[in-house]
Computed example of a mutant assay.
Amino acid sequence: MKPVRIIGMAWFRREDWPRGSGHHGGRRRPPFVARIERLEEEKANIANDIGEVYSEAKSSGFDVKILRKLIAMRKKSKQALAEEDEFLSVYRAAVGL
């Protein structure tokens, strides 16, 4: 079976794929493709910046693993945190911690 590719909402066989670099079926690539590519590049740059901040924190003596956990916890609601703590307590008791 030949690979298929989704373009828009339709399925096309490989031989039906649009040809040509930067073109979409003989047309210029849609503007949203360029926007997505630009945003992906920005996302990579931001991820790099975040990594540098964690490196700075580590060199200042902070435990990066704990910082990441704290950042993840701050994203959760108080209710979600309380529920998670409750489940952890139950599981700890079940395994004897």
Rank of each mutant, 00 (worst) to 15 (best):
K2Q: 11
P3H: 05
P3R: 13
P3L: 15
R5W: 02
I6A: 12
A10C: 06
W11N: 05
W11F: 12
W11G: 14
F12G: 00
R13G: 15
R14P: 00
D16F: 13
W17G: 02
P18V: 05
R19I: 14
R19H: 08
G20I: 05
H23C: 11
G26S: 07
R27F: 10
R29K: 08
R29N: 02
P30I: 10
F32K: 08
F32L: 14
A34W: 11
A34F: 11
I36Y: 03
R38T: 13
R38F: 05
L39H: 01
L39Q: 06
E42W: 15
A44S: 06
A44H: 08
A44C: 01
A44P: 01
A44K: 14
N45C: 09
I46V: 14
I46G: 03
I46P: 00
A47I: 04
D49P: 01
D49C: 09
E52L: 15
V53Y: 09
S55Y: 10
E56Y: 05
A57R: 07
A57W: 01
A57K: 07
S59D: 13
S59T: 08
G61K: 12
G61M: 11
D63P: 00
D63I: 09
D63L: 14
K65Q: 09
I66D: 03
L67Y: 01
R68Q: 07
R68T: 01
I71N: 10
I71D: 08
A72S: 12
M73L: 13
K76T: 10
S77I: 08
K78G: 14
K78E: 06
K78R: 06
A80G: 04
L81Y: 01
L81S: 08
E83Y: 10
E84K: 04
D85K: 02
F87L: 12
L88M: 09
L88A: 13
L88W: 03
S89G: 15
S89P: 01
Y91V: 15
Y91E: 11
V95G: 03
G96E: 03
L97A: 07
L97N: 02
